[in-house]
Design a protein around this nucleic acid. Sequence first.
DNA 1: CCGCTTCATTGCGTTATCGCAAATACTGAA
DNA 2: TTCAGTATTTGCGATAACGCAATGAAGCGG
Lengths: 234, 234
Amino acid sequence: MNKLDRSLIVGLPAFEGLTAETLDVVLASARSQRIEKDTAVFEQDAEANSFFILLDGRVRVVKLTPDGQQVIVRYIVPGELLGIAQAIGRSTYPASAIAVTDCVVLAWPGKLWAEFATAHPGFGMNTYKTVGTRLQDVQTQVVEMATEQVERRVAHALLRLVQQSGRKTDEGLLIDFPISRQDIAEMTGTTLHTVSRLLSAWEEKGLVISGRQQVTVTQPHRLMLLAEGRVERD
Amino acid sequence: MNKLDRSLIVGLPAFEGLTAETLDVVLASARSQRIEKDTAVFEQDAEANSFFILLDGRVRVVKLTPDGQQVIVRYIVPGELLGIAQAIGRSTYPASAIAVTDCVVLAWPGKLWAEFATAHPGFGMNTYKTVGTRLQDVQTQVVEMATEQVERRVAHALLRLVQQSGRKTDEGLLIDFPISRQDIAEMTGTTLHTVSRLLSAWEEKGLVISGRQQVTVTQPHRLMLLAEGRVERD
DNA sequence: CCGCTTCATTGCGTTATCGCAAATACTGAA
DNA sequence: TTCAGTATTTGCGATAACGCAATGAAGCGG
C-alpha cells in the first residue's frame, strides 16, 4: 500500500485548521481510488459505507425519482466533500454520484466520520459548514425554480457552472467538463429541447458559443443581466 | 426576571441527550418572548443576533426575491429551532420568519450558539442533524419542482402540511393554522388562481374541504395517490 | 476510414399554467 | 348590523414550454 502524501489534502477547506499530525492520522485510514468516467462513486439508497473527497475530475450528483426521471443536484469539483451521509444523519446515500470525467477520490470508511468529527472538532465544523453552504445553495435554487421562468433559470445555471468550473479561453469562459443539453435540462427542470433552443438563441445574440457537450460563455455580463431578468427578452 | 422552567424544553429534539444541569445552564441565558400574529421573529438579511426555539404557535419562513416575490421555504412547528444562522456559518438571516399565529419563542444571543455547541457537543450535534434534515427536505423539494407538474406539487405540499400540523376533525385532517391560497401558491411555485382551481376540483371529487384560510384533507390516501401521479387525472 | 451511436437542432401542434378581470364570499371592527 | 378590507372563485384569452418527430452533426470503435 502506497502511503498518501499530506500535500494531497493540505489547503482543502475540509481540513482547514488541522495540524499536520492530524492530517497524517486522517490520511492513514484513507484509500485513494480511481473512478472511470461515467461510473458511479456511489449509488442512491445504497449503504453509506464511505465518504469521499474529490481530488481530481468532476462528479455529478443526481437524484432519481421513482418514475425514472433524473435531477442533477450539483456538480462537485476537486477539493469538495461528497457522500457525507453520516454528517446529515443518514445511513444510506440520498443521491448517486457519477464521474463526469475520470476522477481520483480519497475514500474513508463511513464509520470513521463520527470518530474524526469528535477527535478533531475542526474537521466536524468544516463539514458542517459545507452542509450549511449546500443548504443555502439548494434553497436559492428552490426560490429560482419557484419564481423564474426557464430562460432565467438556465442562464443562472450556466453562470454557476462557469463560476465553479470556468476555464478562460480565447472565446470566453468554457465550462471545462462535458455537459450535454440534457444535463442542463436536468439541472433546471426543463427539457433538452428547450435548452437547445435557448442556447441557439443566445448564440445568435453572441452570448455563448456551444457545441456538442460543450458550452462557452462569451459575454458573462450580458448573460447575467438576462439571468437577473432586467433585459432584452425579445 | 422570571425563571424559565426546565420542563419547557425537556424532550425537545434540540436538547435530547443533555443533562438536567446543562438544560438549566442553557435556559439561564434564554429569554422567552411573545410574538404577535403577523409580526416578524426576524427579518431576512438582518444581523443574526439571536437564535430561537418555537414553543408555541406556527412560524412561516419566507424568502423574498429582489423583485419582490415571496417563496415560503418551510413552516416551523413547536419544538423546532429557527434562525440558526450561526450553525450554517452566516452572520445574517437568509430568510424572514413570520408568526402565522400568536407565538412563544425562546431566544438566545446568537454568539452563544458556538459556546453551547462546544461546551455541550450533544447540542451541536442535534442542531447539525436539524440542518441535515432540512437539506434533505429542500432537495426533495427541488426534485419535485423539477419533475412534477403543479397539481402533484400542491398535493405533496398539502400532505406535508397535514403530516406536520394536521388535527383530526370529524371531516378529516385539518391544517391547524390559517393558510391562504396565496400561501400554498408561494410554497409550490404557482399562483393563487391555480391553487384555487385545484382545491375546487378536489373538493368536487371529495378529497378535501376548504374554506377561507383553511384546508381539511378528507381523503389523504386518495390525495397521496394523486401526489404520486398514479391516478385519475381526468 | 466507415458505420453506428449519441447528441443536437428545429418545425409544428398541443397543453398546462398563467394573468387579468369581474363577481362573490367571508370576517372583523365600528 | 353594516361596511370595508381580504380572500376566493371562475371565465376567458394569452403564452411559455412541452413533446413528438424528423433531420443533421459529431465522435468513437473497429
